[in-house]
């Protein structure tokens, strides 16, 4: 279909040309999305007791957002998820992980030595491990997956470079 006029490259900068509204996809995603989001959150919070973990959970949460963007259009989803949300999740995740690792170091232990939390603050060692899973890995993975998707999509939408190239031809 698109291979016939691929040489012109004129439709590449147009957002509407890449989105086709489909009732089947929209209804399917509307049904599946709550379940996949819940499953992602379950893996994230229950990773220490069952298969899976925060990486898988974060990836599934990110994939749910991608699914919604695929069904309802990338543009509206991109407006819905703000940049500062993604940046806060990614940088906050790295900061949380680093802080939980460095605090035992500051108290004279080793990096990520959870037993120090029990000795100094009376916090169970398990909660340190849970904190880097839930507060560290999962937000980083989810936000980077969503961010990569929107970055790639932005190239197709408001792409001034490709318009200039096609204009020169």
């Amino acid at each position: 279909m698109s291979s016939a006029d691929s040489s012109s490259g004129d439709s590449l900068g147009d957002a509407t040309s890449t989105y086709i509204e489909s009732q089947v996809i929209m209804v399917t995603v509307r049904v599946i999305a709550p379940f996949s989001l819940t499953y992602g959150l379950f893996l994230m919070f229950h990773g220490s007791g069952s298969p899976g973990g925060s990486f898988q959970g974060g990836a599934i949460i990110g994939a749910t957002v991608l699914m919604i963007a695929f069904a309802f259009g990338i543009e509206p989803t991109r407006d819905w998820i703000q940049n500062r949300t993604l940046v806060a999740l990614a940088t906050g995740g790295v900061t949380t992980f680093a802080m939980i690792g460095l605090i035992p170091l500051a108290l004279g232990g080793n990096f990520l030595e959870y037993e120090m939390y029990k000795e100094e603050f009376g916090i169970k060692a398990k909660w340190g491990l849970e904190a880097i899973e839930i507060g560290g890995v999962a937000p980083i993975v989810a936000s980077v997956v969503v961010g990569l998707f929107f970055l790639l999509a932005a190239g197709t939408m408001q792409d001034s470079v490709s318009e200039e190239v096609s204009g020169d031809e």
């Binding site: 298969p51 959870y114 398990k126 491990l129």
Partner: peptide, 9 residues
Amino acid sequence: THVTNAVTS
């Protein structure tokens, strides 16, 4: 580590 999933630990 007090977690039951050895992979996570």
